[in-house]
């Protein structure tokens, strides 16, 4: 009987293979999609201050931010020593959906080579944080060179983790260092530009420039911040440039600038802002 129905069985077998194939051929794509589709409850906001700052740099800022949102953000500070050892202070509250983690460096000096090294140190801190807290997405804020460190990290090391970056805010970050002429490209810019396609495609970037004059925030030239566009546009999901002027818009004061704090609340924090007393 089986012989008689040989053709039918062949058809049945072929059908099974046919049904198996589409799943088999797209298997790795599907698995990857599953992995990135499920987001962990915790998504920290990682802050990296600029040169010469300690991990305590943002204590005041975090207190200020916590006054304005319904969900309080706990604060963890990480200091990366020159030998790669980590020193923690502060702590993350259990079930905090968005703790703030500030990563500083024992050697926080300025300079191109130092920044490359700090990006490597940041990777050490990130590796430990991710393995301890098990998050699979996060947002980041970098002030000045901190923005460069985060960008370098995202280009060079982020793909090693099963972690996606949601948002990055770079405040007064000199993508072309202190070079005022936008036609002269520094080594830092060239590196960032060359590796730009490794940036996470799901990332949303806000680049905030301060303006005390029409050309700079006192230290970083506008043109250097603006060159960030060449790095991010087309490589990430969205890129937005914002310029803030007025008092406290000089380079060092930018993280405490009320306008910029509002931008952080709006774009980086997940806790709802406390409702204002009267609707307009």
């Amino acid at each position: 009987m089986i012989k008689k129905r040989y053709g039918w069985w062949l058809l049945l077998f072929g059908l099974c293979v046919l049904l198996f194939l589409p799943g088999y051929l797209t298997l790795s794509k599907q698995t990857e999609a599953f992995k990135t589709s499920k987001k962990t409850y915790m998504a920290p906001l990682i802050m990296v201050p600029g040169s010469s700052a300690t991990p305590n740099r943002y204590d005041g800022l975090v207190t200020e931010l916590n006054k304005k949102t319904t969900v309080k953000h706990s604060l963890l500070r990480v200091l990366v020593k020159t030998d790669g050892q980590l020193k923690f202070s502060g702590k993350i509250r259990a079930r905090d959906p968005q703790p703030i983690i500030v990563v500083g460096f024992e050697n926080s000096a300025d300079g191109e080579q130092n920044i490359y090294q700090q990006a490597k140190w940041f990777n050490i801190a990130f590796k430990r944080l991710q393995s301890v807290y098990q998050f699979n997405h996060f947002s980041a804020l970098g002030h000045s060179n901190g923005g460069l460190i985060l960008t370098l990290f995202m280009e060079e090391n982020l793909s090693k983790y099963n972690v996606t970056a949601d948002r990055l805010m770079a405040i007064g970050s000199p993508f072309n260092m202190e070079e005022k002429d936008r036609n002269v490209k520094t080594g830092m810019y060239n590196t960032l530009y060359k590796q730009r396609l490794y940036l996470p495609s799901s990332l949303t970037v806000y680049s905030v420039a301060g303006g005390t004059s029409l050309k700079s925030d006192g230290i970083v030239p506008d043109s250097s911040v603006a060159l960030g566009r060449n790095v991010f546009q087309g490589s990430v999901k969205h890129y937005t440039e914002i310029t803030v002027t007025g008092s406290t818009s000089n380079h060092a004061d930018l993280p405490e600038n009320p306008q910029i704090i509002k931008l952080m609340e709006q774009y980086l924090l997940t806790g709802k802002p406390k409702s204002s007393s009267k609707p307009n």
Binding site: C16, L19, F20, G23, Y24, L27, S28, Q30, T31
Partner: peptide, 14 residues
């Protein structure tokens, strides 16, 4: 609607 015998394969990532 994954054909039954393939569920174990696809569900374990191949």
């Amino acid at each position: 609607a994954i054909p039954g015998p393939f569920q174990g394969f696809f569900g374990s990532g191949g």
